[in-house]
Design a protein around this nucleic acid. Structure first.
Lengths: 338, 338
DNA sequence: AAAAGTTTCCAAAGCGCTTGCAAAATCATA
DNA sequence: TATGATTTTGCAAGCGCTTTGGAAACTTTT
């Protein structure tokens, strides 16, 4: 059933049906009702491609997903997408996933824009000076960054959490409890979130008058093995009594290493990790419940899609930086320094 | 830059440009080369909606993602999507994510088909008698089931792993090592994979001449907490010396409970879990490396998208059931019964 | 009752691409 | 060189929707 047939069936023009269905005011309520009813009974659905062609809008938000065989997919991405999807569904638009190899990333954004498959895109996991921001600005593809860049040449809109503040507070908490040497397992510093967190940690040390080498930082892939090895090394080679982890996955590896070394969490070592809120890995269910900085990544996905769903192709967003506070949830994994 | 302009620029007709770019044979190689070069320098990309409208093909595979606030997203979904995405990218088509609340699920499939946004869909996590199979067959929306149904009224194509065989083998292994009482933490039995796995376990018992109550099964949500509680209960109320888990997440909870009870894995209790292969949770990195039935879910995603990417809208697939064997990887978490 | 203003509807022109059919150009054969 | 066969190209008609510019029908005003 297409527009033409439906219009014939009703004995009105296609124009009228289209307007009635799309809520235009110049259709009498009586006609509108009749049209809507008929559309329902016949199960009419506009052909999306036809509508897109006619309106010039894609009705979709793009999400470029980089997949490399050697790099595992991020399980948090699904949480993020669930949030974005919910907001998109509410606005009646779609999430368009564009898988790509890392090296073809920019080309994928170009393709998405050029073929008009999406009206806007989400830029996730931004690097400090991420080329995608420049690219999207240049080609007029509206976007929101999930996270932040660390450049001020090009303004851009973003939604991010206060990584610096969160880790500042977490570090301060450890310091206040008397810890003098701490370890920090973090992501690679070319990613902004990692850089921000490091900044937060360092500023807390400075505030307390501790030297820079009071913290030993390991940067690396955010997986369990990296964290296990790093923790072993930290325990063997330094005198840390506090440990910060940039994710719960890292905390899992740390816990394994600490246990192996016979160290008791919350007593010998105080542990704080960042929790993106992921139902399959809950900090309160660790054998020693974990103190966490906490911010649900699903909410970020929702908010970004929400902001994006209003805007049409070509119309750039206001470059507002929306920074959310990070909660600090205290549980049993921390204690006073010996 | 659109077709028309590009054609003008080259001094040929739109037809010729279109044909050259789409690899039709009736264009001379000389012309084709010229056209392709021009397309590259001008950065021409066909408007996807226009092409879709003209060809009647959507060029996308649909993936309906149910999101309910109370039900967490499945992290494995991302692995699956990574595989599907890779195959889709290879074929030059897209994965179209359609988020939906559980109760609107069927409606979402209808909408996807009606508005022609996709040429085909993936049906994942099928229930024993899943209504989606009937629906898609009825409305002529091509699909492949990831997993299987348990009905034979309607034929359907699927890609699944041999859940029954895998758990049969795993159970047999435990029985051969002398275990007489085993526990089994499984998903809800309305989901086929869970039903199949139970079947495999039971048939192994029967083969060995053990009574039905040699196994105690707990069905529930596949999360860590369910598994933790269930394991505690099993240990307290039964005499099990072997434990099967339907996922690594369940194994995590089981390990926590067992450790808490002071039971040594591989000695007091033998543990086998199913591993969907998920880089963030590796069975070989458990403190006692885990024996597993193993099948990468990413491969399944790849294969399904691959099969789907050839077919065009309306053209149903052959109802082949593609069942993959499941590996049994033995590690230290199992040992002979006392 | 005619003029002016409103409301309701329609015809037709796109949107940018593909493709059936016909025409033009090229080649092969007699 | 003429003729038919073959390769290459172009014209124009869609694909199904939105939307502009009016026309037609109806109300209100004078």
């Amino acid at each position: 059933m297409d527009l033409k047939k439906l219009a014939q069936e009703l004995g009105v023009s296609q124009t009228t049906v289209s307007r009635a269905l799309n809520g235009y005011p110049e259709v009498s309520e009586k006609t509108r009702k009749r049209v809507i009813e008929a559309a329902n009974t016949y199960g009419y659905r506009p052909h999306s491609a036809a509508r897109r062609l006619a309106t010039g809008q894609a009705g979709a938000i793009g999400f470029v997903m980089t997949i490399n065989d050697d790099v595992p997919t991020d399980p948090l991405m699904m949480e993020f997408l669930a949030g974005a999807g919910a907001a998109a569904a509410k606005a009646g638009i779609d999430i368009h996933i564009a898988p790509t190899a890392k090296e073809d990333e920019l080309e994928t954004y170009r393709r998405l824009a050029g073929s008009r498959q999406v009206d806007s895109v989400i830029i996730s996991a931004p690097a400090q000076d991420d080329p995608r921001i420049g690219l999207c600005t240049e080609i007029g593809l509206p976007f929101i960054v999930h996270g932040r860049a660390m450049q001020d040449k090009i303004p851009y809109p973003c939604v991010d959490i206060d990584n610096e503040g969160g880790f500042h507070e977490a570090t301060k908490l450890l310091l206040n409890m008397g810890h003098k040497q701490i370890g920090f397992l973090n992501g690679p510093t070319y990613l902004t979130f990692a850089a921000h967190r490091e900044k937060g940690v360092r500023s807390a040390l400075a505030d307390t008058g501790l030297p820079e080498d009071a913290v030993t930082i390991h940067n690396g892939a955010m997986n369990e093995e990296f964290s296990y090895r790093s923790t072993l090394q930290l325990v063997e080679e330094t005198q840390i009594s506090g440990l910060l982890c940039s994710s719960l996955i890292l905390a899992v590896g740390a816990v394994r290493a600490l246990r192996e070394k016979g160290l008791v969490i919350g007593k010998d070592i105080s542990l704080i990790a960042h929790d993106d809120v992921f139902a399959y890995l809950r900090p309160d269910l660790f054998s020693i419940p974990l103190t966490c900085t906490r911010s649900p990544i699903r909410n970020a996905g929702y908010r970004i899609a929400e902001r994006l769903s209003g805007i049409k192709r070509g119309q750039m967003l206001s470059c507002e930086h929306e920074i959310w506070p990070v909660d600090l949830v205290v549980r049993k994994s921390i204690g006073a320094a010996a």
